[in-house]
Design a protein around this nucleic acid. Structure first.
Lengths: 195, 195
DNA sequence: CGCGACGTTGATTTGCCTCAACGATTGTGG
DNA sequence: CCACAATCGTTGAGGCAAATCAACGTCGCG
């Protein structure tokens, strides 16, 4: 059985080179966990205490509205992070769910270990500040897109940014991410194929 | 003429008590500026280099879509911050505008001064990490609301959270924030008044 | 083989937009 | 201080994007 931490260390090195001490800290702190398809990493009401890195597999983060409908906010595959950053840092109950769409492997730490890591090695504090900014930026992009694009435009944008997900994820999930019904996604696809 | 920095210091003290040194640093670093109604603090393409605290007045942050339509993302009044956090930290050109809706007074620093402040006084680093988390949280809330509520529900929610803005801001601006036309906001209001 | 999940299609409905028109209010120049 | 223009909120008619509901074919799987 392979040691997944090397994948995470590679990931960090692609952002900011780590020294040997820092690499060792990653090896110590991050723990491996397997999640089976359809199992949950987080459910509404839980406080999100873990920050998780996806080694392999695929997750979706979603909320359930008052009519019981699900709305996907994010998909996370290899080399992405998956957690409710708000619940994680505020230590408040989450309004979100995180579900594995495939059998997956993650590396995770608790928020307390992470904060300790920040204190011990400023490099990580720096990396995670950037990650938070990226999260902020991508959320801003989603809002801007939502208020200014049609469903078809949102689909085309998604297809361009995450082409590999089109085949990997069911269209029910993609429709939920785009904010349309699966039926309407189907008509969008038909229309695009024609043109 | 009054010194506005005391207002900002009060604001900080309400979050985390400052010591004398920290208060002095605020006095040195933050500069006052008056912005007249209809003037811009930021325009698309600019890199947002200033982080601004609203002492008095009111601002709106908005984007312009490809059809030339404006979409308000945020209103900031007294005791709020106003800046494009993404452009500020990434030092990339902004896609947003910030406009004064009233004659206003702000206190601002450049991003470089702010980062220096973080290094010198960890307290501020802590406060601003919380502010970034709050920004993330409120953006998440907006997305969740957008995908799961009708315009009427969004209006009721806005009216509950920011009742004072209903009279302070024109309905054109409120409609733009809610993502509807002013005409439709009007019909929403009529319907609510009836029930 | 039969069942359930999934993607597709069509008919109908609905939420919201567009456009046009109208009084009321505000601002401005003479 | 008035006259006029400009802006703002409202109302209504008509249209479109997307939802809902129902039905059907296909596929993988027990």
């Amino acid at each position: 059985m392979s040691d997944c931490t090397s994948i995470l260390i590679d990931y960090f090195n692609r952002h900011i080179p780590l020294n040997k001490e820092e690499e060792a800290a990653v090896k110590v702190l991050f723990k491996e966990r397997r999640i089976r398809k359809r199992h949950y990493l987080l459910q509404e009401g839980d406080i999100c205490v873990n920050n998780s890195f996806v080694v392999s597999g695929c997750f979706r983060m979603f909320m359930v509205d008052k009519n019981g409908k699900e709305h996907n906010l994010q998909f996370s595959t290899e080399d992405w992070w998956i957690s409710d950053l708000y619940s994680l840092f505020k230590r408040e109950p989450s309004k979100l769910y995180i579900e594995a769409l495939e059998n997956s492997i993650i590396l995770y730490t608790t928020i307390d270990e992470l904060l300790q890591l920040f204190e011990d090695y400023p490099t990580f504090s720096h990396i995670f500040r950037i990650l938070t900014q990226n999260a902020l930026a991508s959320q801003q992009q989603r809002i801007l897109q939502y208020v200014s694009s049609t469903a078809e435009e949102r689909y085309l944008c998604f297809a361009q940014k995450r082409p590999e997900l089109l085949h990997r994820i069911s269209s029910v999930q993609i429709a939920s991410y785009l904010g349309v019904t699966p039926e309407f996604l189907s008509t969008i696809r038909k229309k695009i194929a024609k043109s």
